[in-house]
């Protein structure tokens, strides 16, 4: 029984403070160093291996490449024009991102120890300005938020983790609920009233009310709606816009600058009201 006392004490301390315990800091630091080291090692190994593999097949490829080269030369002129256009658009996008939000790119260097949970470790931490509860996104949509930032690394809880919760809206009907993780490829939209309008295919976006995500960022698409005969809420299942298994690079929002990602509705106030009001109540 004495052996179980310490875990119980720590469990209560963690629950009360809601923060990672100070005792964990040296351990987080050490594991962070190991993860960063492994990441550098793996990048080096990958480079060397691919170089060797390239050398093995090089003579075979040489003949094919010579013939292909002629064809490609012709295409090059066409491609140059496209490249220039691409460059321009990229610069525009960069400019837009710079002016609207302060983002920091991070590389995924580790996954959760237990397959039932969905957290990832990224290679940026407090040293780079990362703080707890900062939003993490990709170009496709919301990924999760910073759970515990360390000096060189940060642990990100993905929105598909059962411990994650994000305040969200159904974009079409403005019905509000909480997105909670379920498993690696599903999440639930909970606490939606029975009468709230939500159908399969509706896009769910961040509401901005949790002070983590900017408003209007895509979270997922409704894949299933269940209404039991009794009860005041409905069960809604979401397919997240991101695939947590394939995450490689993410952005941490350092400063959202009150950015609203939703396109502003066009039309008179009356039309907008009619479009957005829920269809019925209980």
């Amino acid at each position: 029984m004495t052996a179980l006392f310490i875990p119980f004490l720590l469990f209560n301390m963690e629950r009360k403070s809601g923060e990672a315990l100070w005792i964990l800091r040296p351990f987080s630091f050490t594991t962070g160093l190991f993860l960063t080291g492994y990441n550098s090692f793996s990048t080096g190994v990958k480079g060397t291996t691919s170089l060797y593999l390239n050398l093995v097949g090089i003579s075979k490829k040489n003949r094919t490449l010579t013939t292909e080269n002629a064809k490609l030369k012709a295409k090059l002129i066409e491609m140059t024009e496209l490249t220039l256009e691409n460059e321009r658009l990229r610069n525009l996008l960069k400019f837009k991102q710079k002016s609207e939000m302060k983002l920091m790119a991070g590389k995924v260097i580790g996954k959760d120890l237990v397959p039932e949970h969905n957290t990832v470790t990224i290679n940026i931490g407090t040293r780079h300005g990362i703080k707890k509860n900062m939003a993490v996104i990709t170009a496709a949509g919301a990924v999760g938020y910073v759970l515990s930032p360390e000096v060189f690394t940060s642990q990100i809880i993905l929105l598909t983790d059962p411990y994650a919760a994000i305040d969200a809206l159904v974009q079409r009907s403005r019905a509000r609920g909480i997105v909670e993780g379920h498993n690696s490829d599903k999440a639930n939209l909970n606490y939606l009233k029975r009468g709230d309008d939500a159908v399969i295919g509706d896009l769910v976006i961040t509401s901005g009310l949790d002070n983590i995500f900017p408003k209007g960022f895509p979270v997922g698409v409704i894949s299933n709606v269940k209404k039991s005969r009794f009860g005041t809420t409905q069960d809604i299942e979401l397919s997240p816009v991101i695939n947590p298994n394939n995450l490689e690079e993410v952005f941490v929002i350092l400063d959202a600058k009150l950015r609203d990602f939703e396109p502003q509705p066009v039309g008179s106030p009356e039309e907008i009201k009619n479009k957005t009001s829920p269809k019925g109540d209980l």
Binding site: I6, P7, F8, L24, T31, D112, H117, Q155, I157
Partner: peptide, 23 residues
């Protein structure tokens, strides 16, 4: 206990719970 301290930063499971499991 030492292993629990090592595992806690690598997962979302709280330290107390990992210690319970390991104990």
């Amino acid at each position: 206990y030492l292993l629990s301290l090592l595992l806690a930063p690598l997962t979302v499971i709280p330290l107390g719970m990992i210690m319970f499991i390991n104990t």
